[in-house]
Design a protein around this nucleic acid. Structure first.
Lengths: 229, 229
DNA sequence: TGGGACAATTAGGCGCCACTAAACGAGGGT
DNA sequence: ACCCTCGTTTAGTGGCGCCTAATTGTCCCA
């Protein structure tokens, strides 16, 4: 079986993993809000069980095995389908869905997962634009970059925004920065911060700090199918 | 806070409690599928915490305090609203809802509870006819008796059926024994078992063992508002 | 009143998942 | 090359919720 704690670790490793696929002890501790020592213990356990879910080298972080990755994607699918469902079927706003989904993702059955998915028409992305893993554990590939990396003068389409902070989400929605919105970086402040961004065909521009712009990802459009709202 | 285990105990005490409001150690152990010794330990804990949720006298079982009762009813409200929601909004059959609700009841927020309730039009009973506690912890009073206690020759209306066993639920639905169905006991077998029951205005009767008839509750109609389907 | 039968409790332990405190190690700067 | 720092690991603990085995209570019946 899979305890909620284990599911949380796998999910965290999955999305903290960078280029090399490795997640650090301290990164996980921060993300999961536990002491680093606790992370060490859990990583040892996940590496020792058969089949192993992570490969763990002392002091060098952990990487998911194929089995662990599959598990992580299952949880992620749960999480994002629940977000969609709360948003589309129960009128949750996009800044409320994350917290609720974090608890429910550990409690739903495969049956409920399937029924929600078909009720929603097998959505491809959650309300923040994050892609929903398919049942077989695959993810539609995407070419996207942080808005912060978009050169001045170029335009793009929002593909996703990070969903961790409700206040940030409300802020972004207030400025029309939602998946599928098109935007352009029209100017930079001193030292490259903030970015002056025009959203859609508004006449106004808004100022986004580099920090905020790092939480928004864009692709070069014209449009992707199946983004959230 | 309230762990899932504690919630399960409170719920179990609530609905094992008979006339005197007491639930026995062994009864709880059977219901919760744990060893009697585990029950003893948990009851001590629930009695010692402030505010206490149960009154516990060694070897004489436990009763809920008003606070404990309120907690139990909150969980019960969760459980039954979830059953309604799965049934009405996601097409679950009435024998599937119980197991799923047993896991979800511990994970939903007050917000989700409220939204499901208003989406469903504040239902008064779950799909098996069990009344849904109101937010203030009150329950609509009911006068109902086990079908097994209905005298031969009299008729009544089904108010609820027990929801623990999916096979029993499928069996009952197959015979039209659902909340609000009217039925009559037309005869008894030898030793009073089985009961010969006519459902609705069918020409056939069906035979229900006393054991099964104890799992079906009836009232004298003509009709109660807000029963499940 | 004294067993017997069965319910309930105590005693001791285990796995999970966190914690703190203290030791360890890896890498950068001097 | 050495040291210092910061990240990481080890060691030891604690709460929770369960277990088994052994003991104690309770109650009914002869």
């Amino acid at each position: 079986m899979l305890t909620p704690a284990i599911e949380d670790y796998l999910k965290a490793i999955y999305d903290l993993a960078g280029e090399d696929g490795r997640a650090s002890t301290s990164g996980l501790a921060r993300r999961l809000d536990v002491a680093p020592a606790s992370v060490t213990g859990m990583l040892r356990k996940l590496a020792e069980r058969r089949p192993a879910w992570v490969v763990y080298q002392k002091s060098r972080g952990a990487t998911l095995t194929p089995e662990g990755r599959l598990r992580a994607l299952e949880i992620l699918r749960h999480h994002r389908l629940i977000e969609c469902f709360l948003h589309d079927a129960l009128g949750y706003s996009w800044d409320e869905v994350h917290a609720e989904a974090d608890r429910l993702e550990h409690a739903i059955s495969e049956t409920l997962e399937d029924r929600m998915a078909s009720r929603l028409g097998d959505p491809l992305a959650d309300p923040h634009g994050h892609p929903i893993p398919r049942k077989d554990g695959t993810l539609p590939p995407r070419r996207e970059i942080p808005l912060a990396d978009l050169p001045v003068g170029s335009s793009a389409v929002v593909s996703r925004v990070s969903d961790g902070d409700p206040a940030l989400l409300r802020y972004l929605k207030g400025r029309g920065i939602v998946p599928n919105a098109s935007l352009a970086v029209v100017d930079l402040g001193p030292l490259g911060d903030p970015l002056m961004v025009r959203v859609g065909d508004a006449s106004e521009t808004c100022a986004l700090s580099r920090k905020v712009a790092g939480e928004v990802h864009v692709h070069d459009g014209p449009r992707e199918r199946g983004q959230g709202t």
